[in-house]
Simulated scan of single mutants.
Amino acid sequence: MKFFSPLRYPGGKLKVSQYIKLLIDTNNLNDGHYVEPYAGGASVALDLLINEYVSNIHINDIDLAIYSFWHSTLYDTENFCKLINDTVVSVEEWKKQKFIIKNKDQFSALEIGFSTFFLNRTNRSGILNAGMIGGNEQTGNWKIDARYNKTDLIKRIELINRFEDRISLNNMDAVEYVQMIDNTLPNNTLIYLDPPYYKKGKELYINYYNHEDHKEIADVVKKLTNRYWLVSYDNETAIKELYSGFRQKIYSLNYSVGKASKGSEVIIYNDKLFVPEIENPTDKKEISNFIKSEIYL
C-alpha cells in the first residue's frame, strides 16, 4: 500500500484504509467529505483524498506539535521542505529538536512543525516522547536516519500540498470540533474517530485521555444521530460499555510499537451506517474477496 503521510504514528489508521473505502462505497459516500477529529498522521484521510474517494478531507488535532506539522506542510511547504533537505540528521540535531518540542511557546509554527517531523522520523516507533533510533551512542542495529529518506519524504509533502484547497485543518479539542462539524458539513460526510488508546495512551501520546475524557467524547458522538460515523479503540471493556447499544466488531491485528505483538481492537458503528459482513477490517484479502462476490455486485 502506498504511504502518503510523512508521519509515522503509533496506532496508525492506515491498516483500515481499505475497509474505510469499502464503507464509503457501500454507503454511497463517494465524492463526499471525510473527517478525522484525531488526525495524527492522517494516513487514511490522505489515501482517500489522493485516490479520489472523497472530495474533501477535514483533519483536526489538539496537539500543537501535530497541528504545526500539518500547518507547515500545507501553508509553508517550500520552507519546510528546505529544512528537511538542509538539516543534518545527527544526535546533536536530535537534541536541538527535542529542546524545541519541549519549549514550544518559544518557537514559530514552522520550527515546531519541523521539530515534530524530525523527532517522529528519528524516534523509536515515531513516538515524540520516546528515545532516538539507535540510542544516544548509536550502537543499535538501526541508526538515527533509518526512517529519514529525505527525497521520498519531501515528495510526499509536495504531493499533499497540491491538494491544499481540498484539506481543512483545525487545532481544536475533539469534543468542540465534532460539535462544530455536525452543524457545518454536508450529509454525505463520513466521520472516523480514532481517539488515544484507552489502556496504553499515556505511553504513546503526549495528549492522552483519562476515563472521563473518553466518556465525554463518547457522549458527544452518540448524539450524532444523523451522521455516518465509526470509532476505533483498543479492545477494552470500559470502551465497549461506553458505547453499549451500538454495533461493535472486535478484530485482531499486529502491533509494531516496541516489539512486535498481537492485539485486538474494537470498531463501533452508528445505526445509520451500512456495515458489510467483514470479519477483520484489516484483512485486505477478505475485503477484496467481498468486493468480488455476488453479494457486493
Rank of each mutant, 00 (worst) to 15 (best):
M1F: 11
F3D: 13
R8Y: 04
G12N: 08
V16Q: 10
K21S: 13
L22Q: 05
L23G: 01
D25I: 04
T26R: 11
T26S: 12
N27L: 06
N30Y: 09
V35L: 08
E36I: 04
G41I: 07
L49I: 03
I50T: 10
N51Y: 06
V54A: 11
H58A: 06
L64T: 14
S68H: 03
S72H: 08
S72R: 09
L74S: 01
L74P: 03
L74I: 04
T77S: 01
N79Y: 04
F80H: 07
V88Y: 13
V88H: 13
S90H: 08
E93G: 06
W94R: 04
Q97H: 00
I101P: 00
K104S: 12
D105H: 11
F107K: 04
S108V: 03
F117G: 06
N120K: 05
N120E: 07
G126S: 08
N129H: 15
I133E: 10
I133M: 12
N136I: 14
N136W: 15
T139R: 15
D145K: 11
D145F: 08
D145P: 04
Y148I: 09
I157Q: 02
N161K: 14
R162C: 12
D165E: 14
R166G: 06
V178G: 03
I181D: 00
N183R: 15
T184P: 05
T184G: 05
N188Y: 12
L190P: 00
I191K: 00
Y192P: 07
Y197S: 08
Y198K: 06
K202I: 10
L204S: 07
Y209D: 05
A218H: 09
A218S: 15
A218G: 09
D219P: 05
V220W: 09
V221Y: 04
K223A: 09
L224V: 03
L224K: 06
N226E: 13
Y228E: 00
Y228S: 02
Y233D: 02
E236V: 12
E236M: 10
Y243D: 01
Q248L: 02
Y251V: 02
L253W: 12
L253F: 15
Y255L: 11
S256Y: 15
S256N: 14
G258W: 01
G263I: 02
G263E: 01
G263W: 03
S264F: 00
I268L: 03
Y269T: 05
N270E: 04
N270A: 01
K272E: 06
F274I: 08
E277G: 05
E277V: 12
N280R: 01
K284W: 06
K285V: 15
K285W: 10
N289W: 07
L297C: 10
